[in-house]
Amino acid sequence: MVGSRLVLRDVEAGYGAVRVLHGVSIDVNEGETVVLLGTNGNGKSTLIKCIMGIVRPERGEIALERDGERIDLIGRAPEDMVHLGITLVPEGRRLFPKLTVEENLMLGAFRAAARRDIAKNLDLCFEAFPVLRSRRRQLAGSMSGGEQQMLAIGRALMSTPAILLVDEPSVGLAPLLVSRVITTIRDLKERYHLTVLMAEQNFNQAVKIADRGYVIVHGQIAFEGRTEDLTEHELVKKYYLGL
């Protein structure tokens, strides 16, 4: 697996006249799990969309560093990101509802570099989420929310990503399932040697697997630090995480 690192510097972005991100700088180093914390509407998804090429920043830098090479990501299309090894598990999962579980997974392997790994990746997916194996012929749209989230993660892994972006995997899931999905992301990360950036509002769950975290408030990074520091930070506890 090649070493990949994401670097964002002073990113400003928004929608039309509305600016959402005001100079955001973050790093996601190889092998790290970084969590982007913040309550609704603070710009987590917008930041992820900037990395993925879905929203184009007005200012700032977004780069992928890999094997001593620096690749500028701004201006590239989302499909190019996938080919560079960056895959997103989007907000709301975005499965293909009228395709089967297996067809959804196979679409995850569309990336040319992932096609030779299909058998191996499929096995790993089914091992991590056995329910996907038993439902492989079922239509994705007919599954429960938890199963759909598992499928969305499994589908992303089928692309053999170097960097996995996950946008709020806990939304709409029962607490027990949230816990399971989050710990599975950690297991998968270790197994695949992934680098993970996860946006979450669920502080307690997210810090279970994070090495480092950023707290985003109104489109600015209000706090960053190692997981231990995050849990200790009074400001974080009191105002942003509602503890």
Binding site: P78, E79, R94, F96, L107, G108, R155, S159
Partner: peptide, 23 residues
């Protein structure tokens, strides 16, 4: 085929298809 499966998916969610690396 990979393109064939992409054809089956494209009307359901074209945006999600881009996230799979297909145009």
């Amino acid at each position: 085929t990979f393109y064939g499966r992409a054809v089956q998916a494209v009307a359901q969610d074209a945006f999600a298809l881009r996230l799979m690396g297909a145009n």
